[in-house]
Amino acid sequence: MLDGPVDVRMATSGDIHAIRDIDTKAGRSPADIAAMATAILDENRLVVVASADGNIVGWGKTHFWSYANGQAPGGHYLGGVTVLPEFRRHGIARALTQVRLNWIWARADSAWYIVNPSNQASIDLHREWGFAEVARAAKLHTTSFTGCVGLLLQAKRPLED
Rank of each mutant, 00 (worst) to 15 (best):
M10I: 02
A18G: 10
N116F: 04
G91C: 06
R100A: 09
P73H: 12
L78G: 08
V83S: 06
R94S: 15
G70H: 01
A35L: 15
A121Q: 01
L46D: 03
I19G: 03
I16P: 08
L46F: 03
F87S: 00
V6D: 07
S13W: 09
E86H: 09
K156N: 11
V99E: 13
D3S: 13
L151Q: 10
W59D: 01
W129Q: 15
A52Y: 02
R127L: 10
E86L: 09
D42F: 05
D15R: 03
D109S: 15
M1W: 05
R45K: 14
L101V: 08
D109I: 12
I40F: 10
I19A: 05
A121N: 02
G74F: 02
R28G: 00
N119K: 05
R88T: 14
G147Y: 03
P30M: 02
D53C: 12
M10S: 06
S51F: 03
L140I: 15
N119L: 11
V115G: 12
I104D: 00
W65G: 00
A35E: 12
W105F: 10
H141M: 13
Y67K: 14
R94N: 14
D161F: 10
A37D: 06
L2H: 08
V115M: 12
A11G: 05
A34M: 05
D53S: 12
W129M: 15
F131R: 08
H141E: 13
G74L: 06
V48R: 07
A95D: 14
D32P: 11
A11E: 02
S122K: 06
H17S: 15
I123N: 01
Y113R: 07
A26K: 01
Y67G: 03
T97G: 09
V49H: 07
G58N: 04
